[in-house]
């Protein structure tokens, strides 16, 4: 893809879709409205699971963002999610402050951690980063358990403080998560059209051209990872807030892989419906298949393989004549 095409792509896409844009927008509005009105009808467990879905959808978005803009795979985003969740819990335990203070702090910590982590592999191909994220995911449980003094060890910590006093806990969790998800989706669609977003896309599609314009590949790599980690940390803060508790049980090695599963299942898209699909897939499947626990990784694995193959194989016939030719 040429650079000009890249820039044109957005413009042409917008104008070509102009007719459909309203329909697409309307359906997203309808979705948001339906979700906003849902608490009038449903209650209890459904609202709780949905608020977790929203939080996980944010985490899925952070992984998808990394794939889309950076072309990199991370199986260690659970680290940044945990960072956000524990930031909220620890701020409440030590300082007695609510998520109003700890949420920005979580985002900041996530960005710093993401930068520190991505910096060493800035000049290398994406597979090195993937290997490093594997180490990150495996190191997470022992860090959480090892720093017992802060993290509460195996038992974890509770998050009890409300954001807005006077509103029921269930409603707060639900609406705060929903509002954040919608805001992040809007911000992401804005980012796609912004100069920074285009610069990152160009650095991935045409590294040389981008370099000629002063956008180095390593800068693009580090900055997209930093953004993605900040978003993951935000998602973690929401996960902690929505479930009122953080413990090492929810941050095993596999939680990082599952985030990637959610991202792949949503085809790495950055739209609200896609994020919801990904978030729901990784939240609801384990909940409803709790009795068949061991089937969950199998199901996720199959989903990962099938979706990856279907999305990448494209025209399978191209693969066949090649063998016949030999």
């Amino acid at each position: 893809m040429a650079v000009s095409e890249l820039a044109h792509g957005t413009k042409a896409g917008v104008s070509a879709r102009n007719g459909n844009v309203d329909a697409a927008r309307l359906s997203i509005f309808a979705l948001v409205a339906a979700l906003a009105l849902l608490p009038l009808l449903a209650g209890g467990f459904l609202l709780y699971s949905l608020s977790l879905c929203f939080a996980n959808a944010l985490a899925v978005l952070s992984v998808s963002m990394l794939v889309r803009y950076g072309g990199e795979v991370s199986i260690g985003h659970s680290f940044f999610v945990a960072l956000g969740a524990y930031a909220v819990a620890i701020v409440e335990h030590r300082l007695g402050l609510s998520i109003a203070v700890s949420l920005p702090l979580a985002v900041l910590l996530g960005a710093i951690a993401g930068f520190v982590f991505a910096f060493p592999s800035r000049r290398l191909s994406g597979i090195y980063l993937a290997v490093a994220t594997m180490a990150l995911a495996l190191a997470l449980p022992e860090i959480l358990i090892g720093f017992e003094k802060f993290t509460g060890g195996f038992e974890g910590l509770y998050i009890a403080q409300d954001l807005i006093p006077g509103i029921s806990k269930a409603l707060q969790r639900y609406y705060v998560a929903l509002v954040l998800l919608v805001v992040v989706c809007l911000a992401l669609s804005h980012f796609r059209k912004s100069a920074q977003g285009l610069a990152l896309l160009m650095a991935q599609a045409q590294p040389r051209a981008a370099e000629a314009m002063g956008i180095t590949r390593s800068w693009a790599r580090v900055s997209i990872f930093t953004l993605s980690a900040a978003l993951a940390s935000l998602a973690g803060a929401m996960t902690g807030f929505a479930s009122s508790t953080v413990s090492p049980n929810s941050f095993t090695f596999f939680s990082g892989v599952f985030l990637l599963v959610g991202s792949v299942v949503s085809l790495n898209r950055l739209s609200l419906p896609a994020a919801l699909v990904g978030g729901a897939f990784i939240t609801l499947v384990p909940t409803y298949l709790a009795k068949a626990g061991d089937w969950v990784p199998i199901l996720y694995g199959v989903a990962l393989i099938v979706v990856t193959l279907a999305a990448n194989a494209g025209d399978l016939r191209r693969f066949l004549p090649r063998r016949r030719g030999r």
Binding site: I75, W295, P297, Y300, G301, L304, T308
Partner: peptide, 16 residues
């Protein structure tokens, strides 16, 4: 990248 993701899927299936 996609092939690497697919090997993760294989790993999950084997793990399960």
């Amino acid at each position: 990248l996609a092939s690497t993701i697919a090997t993760l899927g294989v790993g999950l299936v084997l793990q399960g």
